[in-house]
Design a protein around this nucleic acid. Sequence first.
DNA 1: CGGCCATGCGTACGATCGTACACATCGGTG
DNA 2: CACCGATGTGTACGATCGTACGCATGGCCG
Lengths: 189, 189
Amino acid sequence: MASRRFDPDRRDRIIAAALDVIAAQGVAGASHRKIAEQAGVPLGSMTYHFANMDELLTEAFRRFGNSIADRFDQELGEATDVDGARLAVVDLIHLDLLDSQRDLVLTHELYTLAARKPVFRQITRDWMARNRRALGLHFDPETCRMLDALIEGLFIHAALDTEPHHRATTVEAVARITTPYHRPARTAH
Amino acid sequence: MASRRFDPDRRDRIIAAALDVIAAQGVAGASHRKIAEQAGVPLGSMTYHFANMDELLTEAFRRFGNSIADRFDQELGEATDVDGARLAVVDLIHLDLLDSQRDLVLTHELYTLAARKPVFRQITRDWMARNRRALGLHFDPETCRMLDALIEGLFIHAALDTEPHHRATTVEAVARITTPYHRPARTAH
DNA sequence: CGGCCATGCGTACGATCGTACACATCGGTG
DNA sequence: CACCGATGTGTACGATCGTACGCATGGCCG
């Protein structure tokens, strides 16, 4: 039998399994028992490595948020001008995120928790702050807020629409939201 | 004692209670027992009036979606031009929706269910379709999609941000997303 | 006026949950 | 080599859940 000594991978495996179960069954369906089975560890390990369910969920969602934010940092860090940044945003939405039903589901689950429990709200805020910082390399703060909101909204629609989103629509939407509005000159009246 | 004969209000009261409990405790915390207590009906009434939990949730969220969509119809129906419609959208976001933590929480809960179960996805789609139809009175279809997405995103941010959203930011964001993008003329190079 | 049946309810059952905790295991230490 | 404490696990308990179902109730029909 494998050594009974401390196994540093054990914690990680449980966290990964937690995200898998949440993606498949939702937070509501994520029990210690199911996660333990998915991770291939005994039930007793759950309370040994994590004081309670909230601690496990907290760590899991923090890891999830960071993994998404890493992609923001990477894509946007490579952009060299505003147009490149716009393109990076479009790619982030289309390539990395919309294709992955898993990420969408996890995002929804996190938001739902965040709307109710302060701990998860903080995780979400940290995540959003990271995203905005990445966007802030190329856009002014107010635009970052709008752009961030638009990205969130496009997420949601992608999760629920039957028909796939057209990339052209995303391109146009990103272009619009990053372009300051100039009130048109009034014609005489 | 009150009559044992059929009470048509009973169903409605249960549905209203269900939304109250979901708003307060989330779908995860909404049990037959809690809803029954909130509605002031015995536990046995729950399975009498609703075949199972999903049927109750379905009816509750359908009612919720319709109540929000009604406000969209009303506000946008009163607008007479595009600027009026833009203002209506801003008002919808700020007056009716952002102030109400309850609506935000319910929206998140519905989306989370919708991401997983087809029944609730259909409810969400119907709701979105109603909203888009209302927006369609004043904007072209592509703009409706973008605007709808932006509204969703602003919702989410409102639920999670500590600081309140500035109305001016919303006004600017709505103006931008409803203004077609014109590629700027290139300077010589 | 007496019985019947639609309406509505109290209760109990089996499943599942989070968590606690006694106990097994075994590398390191003296 | 003996034992001790760190590491990890099996199991059981109390709470809560959705749901089923037998039974109480009382208007209505004959």
